[in-house]
Design a binder for these strands. Structure first.
Lengths: 334, 334
DNA sequence: CTGTTAGCGCATTCAC
DNA sequence: GTGAATGCGCTAACAG
């Protein structure tokens, strides 16, 4: 285990002071070309590599790391976010530190702590719980926090979300335009902000279309595909079965498709899913799509901007969605 | 922007020396209970948070960070890896630093540099290129490197891969057992180690089965779904069209399915895909499956083990695969 | 059980 | 253009 050369060693080898070596390696001006080259030569021949840990400590304040606390890295939505975040950070010479909360508020809290110990310059969070008192204190202490996917209740921070209401409205209108009236909404946990937004807009759109009591076809609890399937099976067996289903997220879509595959006449039921997925094209599933990578990129952008200017106004970025027709959403009721 | 209290401040508030405060906060023994409590009280009331940057520097050597260089974080395979890695690292008090190489060897090199500056204790890499000269030097200098998914040519490091040959053999045998002889293999870029393993075993298995000239049905270049589709379309139009297709990765599987959907009689062709995917179940696609999260976990485990014992023998972990029959692989030739 | 003395590797004054 | 001195916040020997 060889010891890495330090700046001091490089400086000595080049016959200059530590500070001059530091200037060269940080590309600072006011160094004679000859000196610069001597230092550079010494550095490469010694295999010097700067120590970012020491540099960050010396500089004081924050490190050049940004933390990302996500619900579940293995979920394709969150990994798309991470990908966009990482790409944008890199442009600014920042590195990404990721951590999974497993959607557990308590874990989210302890992860926040660990990342803060690392003195991250900013924290990008997909809030799991409702209580962010810990974070609030940190923000007061100067921490940059950006929230993605869902707003953090009661916190005045930069936020990036998609246009949940617009997407839902467009999906419902799409189905209405194809002649459907009995449209079901299959959503996940009622306490999620995205559920609330989407379900509320669903009801509003139905009401605007003159369909009374749309609550009949409103279901929640589809936190996974199996639960969604059960909900759809039950809907189909009810007195007034829906002729179309709006699945409120990608897991709900999978469950819906499973239920329809198994049901007699299931292939007659129209389906629109929220969230695009790779095989939707192959399966011919109409979806409400948006760009998750861009979402991450924008979040990172906001984090960088606020770190540079703590006094800028808090921003709320709402990304557009669009309906992508692929067949399943264009079936007409019989 | 408030200044965080340091250990020294906490110590003073508690009326003890810096070192004693350090002992308490690091849960070291040999501190009187009364003292311990005084320090803890001071720490919490001051809102103290240890500075991991300073701690790592003082400890010297490496930081408590582990780097992961992946091909593309947005790809579900890599994000599953990342998820497994992160989970295992957390158990050991380590944090994960992720970076995407975009499968570009040059980028892989510069990312390696950046992570090393951060003094990561270990590097987990999905090697993009063939040249790892930079890494080799670092390993000599004491860096722990673990390689996942594909071995790094000419480097004697801990490695985690799946049983590509066994999986391929099982898939071919599965198709043979269902009566197929004209089996096609649709693989991605020929320079990829996984391609070489899988294609070689495909040919060997065919030969063992007494099918001559299986090269007729061997294709490469399916780096994305569109390319795979073209390859399959061409295969089906040839004089001796295959009655079954073994798609060598998840993108190839998608392309194959697209081609079969569009071809007349395509629904007669059997399909087995390498790599499982969420909707394979719904689509009834038989696949060669394995556990990518576990793969990441094992890699992290190896990284931790080697960091603790630099002299342990280099390990090669080969994870099992299994054929999951779902219908598409059980069709018999007509 | 507790405190003192030195650094870790670098950046940052301020001189020269 | 260049350098000497000082400190970032903490850990690590040693002493007491």
């Amino acid at each position: 285990m060889i010891r890495r050369p330090t700046l001091a060693v490089v400086a000595e080898a080049a016959g200059v002071s530590l500070k001059t070596a530091s200037r060269v390696l940080n590309r600072e001006p006011n160094v004679a070309d000859a000196t610069r080259e001597r230092v550079l030569d010494a550095a490469t021949s010694l295999g010097f590599r700067r120590n970012a840990v020491a540099a960050d400590l010396a500089r004081g304040g924050f490190s050049r790391l940004v933390g990302f606390i996500t619900g579940d890295l293995a979920n394709e939505f969150y990994s798309a976010l991470a990908s966009g975040i990482e790409r944008e950070l890199r442009e600014h010479g920042l590195q990404l530190l990721t951590a999974s909360s497993d959607e557990d508020p308590e874990r989210e809290g302890s992860l926040t702590g660990e990342l803060l110990e690392r003195r991250v310059g900013a924290l990008i969070v997909t809030p799991a719980g409702a209580d962010h008192s810990a974070l609030r204190g940190e923000i007061a202490a100067g921490l940059t926090v950006v929230v993605v996917d869902r707003p953090a209740a009661g916190m005045d921070v930069d936020t990036v979300v998609i246009d949940n209401r617009g997407g839902t409205r467009a999906a419902v209108d799409h189905l209405l335009a194809h002649g459907h009236r009995r449209i079901a909404f299959v959503g996940d946990a009622p306490h999620l902000w995205t559920y609330q937004e989407r379900s509320a807009e669903f009801l509003a759109a139905m009401q605007d279309a003159g369909v009374p009591d749309a609550e009949r076809w409103l279901r929640s609890g589809a936190h996974d595909a199996a639960a969604a399937r059960d909900l759809v099976v039950e809907l189909l067996a009810a007195p007034e079965p829906p002729t179309a289903v709006l699945a409120a997220n990608n897991r709900a879509t999978v469950g819906t498709l499973q239920a329809l595959r198994d049901a007699s006449g299931g292939d007659q039921v129209a389906v629109v899913g929220f969230d695009d997925f790779e095989l939707a094209d192959l399966l011919g599933i109409t979806v409400v799509a948006y760009d998750a990578v861009e979402m991450g990129r924008r979040a990172a952008e906001l984090a960088v901007a606020r770190s540079a200017d703590r006094d800028r106004p808090v921003e709320l970025v709402v990304l557009p969605t669009r309906v992508v027709p692929r067949g399943s959403g264009e079936r007409r009721p019989r």
